[in-house]
Amino acid sequence: MTRNGLLRGGAFVAAGIAFPLLFNAAWLVNIGILTLMYAALAVSWNLFSGFTGYITLGQVAFFGLGAYSLGITFEHFGIGSGYNPFYVLPIVGACVAFASLPVAWIALRTRAMTFAIVTLTLLFIVQQLAFNLHSLTHGSSGLMLPTPTTFGVDNYDRPFYYAMLGLVLLALLICWGILRSKLGLMLLSIREDEEKARGLGIRVTGTKLVAWWLHVFVTAMVGGVWAYYLTFIYPESSVDPLVMIGAVLMTFLGGRGTLWGPVVGALVLVPAQQYMLIHLGGSQLYLVGYAAVFMVVLLVLPRGIIPSIRDGVVRTRERQRTRGGAAKAAV
């Protein structure tokens, strides 16, 4: 890890841990949870789509599956309350991820736009399942999860906040590991030229499935934490196309294929969205604001914030170097 990377990571962890301790107003911590939730979703979306170039619009289906899996587990097994359900999450994540592999394998036979559409239909299929598998999900009347009573009233939100923070860090750690590993090299070569990669003997389908598994693993856990936090889930909220759009937007805003891009995107967009939500009232006008942000991003920073800043830094350094060289030559 480079020194700068370590500093950046350390600063993020420190700020993340300190935030609810400094600002303990419930509504602020609530926005913090939402921001981290989107950050975790955006980072794991980027983990698959940013690294492979395959745009998935079905991620939220697995968010919903994670949410329902935890809810259903609550109903049918005594997993206790308090912190215990958090420990069940990795199992939920892994199960959802394994269950998604056959579907992913089929979807990955398509490319580009077709893949985006196929995965988008996944989202609606899971929503319909949530509506119709009454015995498991209670359909449109929703599913109740037990409210953890041991968390107290004053800082009730904190455990959920830290759980989300943990998931963001996990997702970042996975991305960071991928970027340094053979897996990353293989994924990037697939993104650049999949046919060529095949010709070199890279097992493209298996490689994509590994990235897919990892992104569903994190996504489903995020869904689980979210369900436990709200203690009440129903089909429209747990498989919400707007959440999907949000995660994709944040990744585009911050910079696709970069480590920190999706986090930056979430840090900018979620608070902005909440602000608009409060000030523009309950109307759907904030969606117009969303669209406006997207337009501006595409026009001004087509590749996202992080790559643009990086280019700027490189250019400034180059300029300084040439100027330094010229000055030396003059002496």
Partner: peptide, 25 residues
């Protein structure tokens, strides 16, 4: 692969067993 370096292009062309997927690039 235009976005990879020359060395990365070369190493990407090594045929890897599954076991080395998580090793250093």
């Amino acid at each position: 692969f235009p976005d990879l370096t020359l060395v990365e292009n070369m190493v990407a062309a090594l045929q890897q067993p599954w076991t080395s997927v998580f090793t250093r690039a």
